[in-house]
Design a protein around this nucleic acid. Sequence first.
DNA 1: GTCTATCCATACGCTTGCGTATGGGGCAAG
DNA 2: CTTGCCCCATACGCAAGCGTATGGATAGAC
Lengths: 205, 205
Amino acid sequence: MSPAAPVEPKQSLTADAWAEAALEVIAQSGFDAVAVEPLARRLGVTKGSFYWHFENRDALLCAALERWERAETDDIVARIGPEPDPYQRIVKLFKAANASYRAGRLYLAIAAAEDKPMVQSFVRRVSERRMQYLFECYRALGFSEASAAHWARFAYATFMGNLQIGRDTPELMPTGAEFSEYVKLMIKVLIPREAPPDDDGDPPA
Amino acid sequence: MSPAAPVEPKQSLTADAWAEAALEVIAQSGFDAVAVEPLARRLGVTKGSFYWHFENRDALLCAALERWERAETDDIVARIGPEPDPYQRIVKLFKAANASYRAGRLYLAIAAAEDKPMVQSFVRRVSERRMQYLFECYRALGFSEASAAHWARFAYATFMGNLQIGRDTPELMPTGAEFSEYVKLMIKVLIPREAPPDDDGDPPA
DNA sequence: GTCTATCCATACGCTTGCGTATGGGGCAAG
DNA sequence: CTTGCCCCATACGCAAGCGTATGGATAGAC
């Protein structure tokens, strides 16, 4: 019932602080739940502060989305950047995908608001970048263009689906050792070490 | 700009018509977009009609969710019910999963509103029922309890992720023959005909 | 000390949507 | 014709949230 944690503004609020708070609300209650006045109460200030830092509500949402996109891009290169083996890169992606619960909720919440045109472009870029990264991993493993695209889509769909399951039915997502087995199974299946010899293999061109 | 299609109410409106219209709005604009007065305008009537059929807005949302759950349950048994082969049952599930675009959007939109306690139980039941169905398919294929749970979760995650990709980045989801190849690849990978002999196989107990 | 820019509070008007109260039109029963 | 019921329209009060206008407070510049 109490409005989360009405922190006192120890010093001047920055625009990034507003954007970060907006992302927090999005992760918790969805994109449409971002309102100026409740957010101000949450930060211990009033609207007067907000409309000094931002033009209007849409400007805040845009700033939050930019911050989100930047964080996603930084993560994908920072957490698994210096890894020469493409196999291990995909493995690390799997681990990282299920690592940050908040990041997963954020993606699902933002993607669920794709009817707003502003959101659509951000989600597209982030999603395309991730699948592109996976695509290059499979290419580096020796897959053809066509099969790499299929496997990258396949693997990415599994990422997304696991996020969804973890959010909607967390009791069906195992923990501990059983979860490790589950991840191991998916990695083993989604990263065939040698390309399959038949139709879905990798023809030279 | 125009409010969709303001149909004239040829005869008496039923509660189911309101629920169906609510589902349409959910699929198009998300769960929070369901408002009484816009919905009434959409149906060519006023609030006076609504509050005769329903106690309040929550009652409409509940009715819509019940209608959704019923439709999902009917679909899963009607579209692939009389199929003895568990392998073909999973294959049909894959086809059906990507068949109805609207059903996919509906699931994603409703699941994205799981912060509302009312929604959560519905999503849980539908999702658990689907995974249970998949689980039984894998069991019928000879998988152990543990591995069947893993493969069912794996396959369901892939379903969900493909829905998400098709909604967020439809240009990355192939069409026509290439889509068929994609589906064939997933089926081949997600339904190993003979259970693998090693660790993730199916020990007798 | 004064001045100015920065950051925020307060107060107001406006719109949208929820819920209620009340009345009215249509239609079948009597 | 009148009565009663079903379905809906109209009108109202209320709350929440957006955006604006304006003033106040604080801190550094000079």
